[in-house]
Simulated assay, not measured.
Amino acid sequence: MEPLAARLGTTKGSFYWHFANREALIEATLSLWEQRFTEATISAVADEPDPAARLRMLFTRVSRDAEHNPVAVSVLASAGHELVAPVARRVMERRMAYVVSLFEEVGFPPEVAVQRAILGLTAHIGNNQLAVRLPGLLPLGTDDRLDGYLDAAVELLLHDAPGPTRSATP
């Protein structure tokens, strides 16, 4: 607590005014992370009626600032911690279920929707790891490059989609 308090220019005592202990601070932080980076993100794309477009919006939103937002990488790296583990699991299960539902809405059968969701989520996690741990390695530094990459990735994930939705681009 002391290094964090010093970094924020406050006292350790002020932390204990708001949080009973270090664990309470961690729990509050994880709850805020879950709300902002999972539930709020899902809500932000929910109004898009086309599931393929919603999928692209989702991946764009979560990829846009990956290099500047190491929180998810840090949380997943700490998933073995007793306080972090249940939240990390709940968040990843929620994200997985949501992405699976998008692929099912596109028309994929459940087992294929799960495979596509796993592929999309693990690619996203890998991209975030590289962006945070080795900044500048991925040649996606401009919006145009990132958009092109996301278009190609979503197109691959939607390849052979049943029905009229074949592309995430309008």
Rank of each mutant, 00 (worst) to 15 (best):
residue 71 V to M: 09
residue 125 I to P: 02
residue 101 S to M: 11
residue 104 E to C: 09
residue 148 G to A: 03
residue 58 L to K: 08
residue 19 F to E: 12
residue 48 E to W: 11
residue 59 F to A: 09
residue 79 A to N: 02
residue 65 D to W: 05
residue 112 V to E: 11
residue 122 T to I: 05
residue 75 V to C: 07
residue 139 P to W: 02
residue 131 A to T: 05
residue 104 E to S: 13
residue 49 P to E: 04
residue 43 S to F: 08
residue 126 G to E: 05
residue 76 L to S: 06
residue 123 A to I: 06
residue 43 S to E: 15
residue 106 V to H: 03
residue 49 P to L: 01
residue 31 S to A: 15
residue 115 Q to C: 07
residue 21 N to P: 11
residue 20 A to H: 09
residue 24 A to E: 13
residue 41 T to L: 15
residue 135 P to R: 03
residue 53 A to Q: 12
residue 99 V to W: 03
residue 22 R to N: 14
residue 24 A to H: 13
residue 45 V to W: 12
residue 25 L to S: 03
residue 17 W to N: 14
residue 50 D to S: 15
residue 58 L to C: 11
residue 52 A to G: 13
residue 109 P to C: 01
residue 145 R to C: 02
residue 123 A to R: 05
residue 127 N to M: 12
residue 77 A to N: 13
residue 133 R to A: 15
residue 123 A to S: 12
residue 106 V to C: 04
residue 112 V to S: 04
residue 27 E to H: 12
residue 19 F to H: 15
residue 102 L to Q: 01
residue 16 Y to N: 11
residue 85 A to I: 06
residue 57 M to K: 07
residue 85 A to N: 10
residue 20 A to N: 06
residue 16 Y to F: 15
residue 45 V to T: 15
residue 104 E to G: 14
residue 36 R to K: 13
residue 98 Y to Q: 07
residue 46 A to M: 12
residue 107 G to W: 01
residue 70 P to C: 11
residue 59 F to C: 09
residue 19 F to C: 13
residue 102 L to T: 00
residue 144 D to C: 05
residue 116 R to T: 10
residue 72 A to V: 06
residue 120 G to T: 00
residue 138 L to I: 06
residue 24 A to R: 08
residue 145 R to W: 03
residue 43 S to W: 08
residue 119 L to H: 01
residue 62 V to C: 08
residue 18 H to G: 06
residue 61 R to M: 08
